[in-house]
Design a protein around this nucleic acid. Structure first.
Lengths: 345, 345
DNA sequence: TTGAAAGCGATACCAT
DNA sequence: ATGGTATCGCTTTCAA
């Protein structure tokens, strides 16, 4: 039983030094020493003093002041994660996993949401920069190349995920193979015997969505299946999608693809509003939805990013870049798909 | 023209001082001055120099080094948020809103998930403490009173939300009225003509769940309706809940209540597995589910925390405590409920 | 093997 | 109205 002292204001390295009867430098030296395989201190200090110092530090309840360390070293052991919306389950899961990995590696994680607006993205990047994060993992908005450049100018590593910024160099990437994801969606519908596939999206040049659409079209052609896509204005999509679906069905379309999470949400809501049933009236494949859909109506399918994998690749790549070993590369991930309540492949 | 190299790793307050031809102290003084109503600087510096200093700072792209400020002042303009699982939509939404409010108030937010394990909770509290957060907003695990005490000993403000730690003093609280939430769930089912209500939960002394159950029982008695609750082992709930639901239906129970998010997830999955349809075979009220259920089968209802309200109250209360105005109190929130795809009350 | 001392960048007290 | 300077806690040469 250790009789822990009543912790008062704060124990500094100076207190430890005094209590252990050594100099401040030595304490710092020992406390930052790497441990040998036999658990011992790899530094020039004698094992005996090293142990005494460590023990004293523990007894006093010493913890290094991060601000001071950060000021002195320029490192903060903090990484910044920026997504469009943390309450989107897909991002929530990725962030959670990144946070866990980072925590295990001794890093703190700062997470922020941009609402997909580049002014917010820029502001957050600045804020994180001035807070001294050691690296970034971001799902970028369209058109934030300048912000990324700003990070790179400070020689901080960046890993992009979920969305690409084509042409940007010097960053790591962990991206879904979106064309393959599109092909996957069509194949699911083919295997359910559908012949007339429709896709709804909003007007955009987000490469993710375009690539998915291309994948769909390609696979549909390959299978000799009709493929039609409807393009709506982003602002009024939620409203307009209802009539699009209504008309689609009138015209004999028997399956719909919603190529992003936002579209999936609006699309399924519209289907409920129209009273269509899945898959009798319309088969459906959505994208980027949570893995809890088994809770709900299990009769539609999803194509997803494997969130854990994305988190793992992203964090490992960033950590490697921060530490100096490991390098920033581009990792293309295979899509995952969910049929009903079963995950295959 | 100075013959300095163009590349400046970072602009410091000293650079600004030199460029503006004043002392470091004055720069700090002006840059920390509060602004008057007419937009001007409330400090003893003359308006002219004040303006010159600010302009110079902007021109050089100066941003204060947070580590240095934090070291010097003890403040970090950072708050720590701890939840059980950020990928749980309910927490995701609350965190997102807190983050936004904090951001607007000039604070950075650090979010972490505990997985509902108190060792994790403790570890995270320590980590946040040593990182120098200015305050905490936490959904505590059961049995972490000691961690909270540790925070309070440092005189940092804490706001609890979602879950209470009865008996802990000196903290703010933003809590759902869980008894009322339970009563609400039963009333929904009554209004749908149900007469035999069942509830499933795992073995626990989490006050949230107990209070909900009590609310249910109370309201059922008041309405002369039968109420049965099944208590499972936490570890095997996911599996056992299937047979519980099967038996319940055999025994004539016509409605189920799942009094937490975790139980709701398992419960609905089980219902899908059993092939029951809602509400023909069983009416259902879940708890703490996301607001996107309109996407899915809308034929069951939810009782929720109003996430924005929780976030707003929590953050305001914390900010008040940090700033010194405002005080920590207990705020009890009314439940929100969702019927089908419509939100009422 | 150990210690003294010079900063890191910003703040705030005390002079002027 | 402005400036000098000690200090926050820690890391890191360089000397002893």
């Amino acid at each position: 039983m250790s009789d822990r002292p009543i912790v008062s204001p704060d124990v500094t390295i100076r207190d430890v030094a005094e209590a252990a009867g050594v100099s401040i430098s030595l304490v710092s030296f020992v406390l930052n020493a790497r441990r040998g395989p036999s658990g011992e201190y790899l530094c020039s200090a004698s094992q005996k003093t090293a142990e005494r110092i460590v023990e004293t530090a523990e007894r006093l309840g010493y913890h290094r002041n991060k601000a001071a360390t950060s000021l002195r070293t320029g490192r903060s052991d903090t990484i910044g994660v920026i997504v469009s919306d943390i309450s989107n389950t897909c991002f929530g899961q990725i962030c959670r996993k990144i946070e866990k990995l980072a925590n295990d590696a001794g890093y703190l994680t700062i997470i922020a949401s941009t609402d997909d607006r580049k002014e917010n993205f820029r502001q957050l990047v600045d804020k994180f920069l001035y807070s001294g994060v050691d690296g970034f993992i971001v799902a970028p908005c369209h058109g934030v190349e300048d912000s990324i450049a700003k990070i790179l100018k400070r020689r901080l590593p960046v890993v992009l995920f979920d969305r690409d910024l084509p042409g940007v160099e010097g960053v790591g990437r962990v991206l879904l193979d979106n064309e393959k994801a599109g092909r996957c969606a069509v194949r699911i519908l083919c295997s359910q015997g559908r012949k007339h596939i429709g896709l709804v999206r909003y007007e955009t040049d987000i490469p993710t969505i375009i690539a998915r659409e291309n994948g769909c079209r390609e696979e549909a052609e390959k299978n000799g299946i009709s493929f039609t896509s409807a393009i709506l204005a982003r602002e009024t999509m939620r409203r307009d999608i209802v009539s699009v679906l209504h008309n689609a069905r009138e015209e004999g379309i028997d399956a719909m693809i919603f190529p992003s999470n936002a579209i999936t949400v609006d699309g399924l809501s519209a289907i409920n509003e129209l009273g269509f049933s899945i898959p009798e009236d319309l088969a459906v494949v959505g994208f980027d939805q949570e893995d809890r859909s088994e809770m709900f109506n299990p009769w539609f399918s999803f194509v997803n990013q494997p969130t854990k994998l994305v988190a793992e690749y992203s964090f490992r790549m960033l950590l490697g870049a921060i530490k100096g070993d490991g390098q920033l590369e581009t990792k293309i991930i295979n899509p995952l798909y969910t049929l009903g309540s079963k995950i295959k492949k």
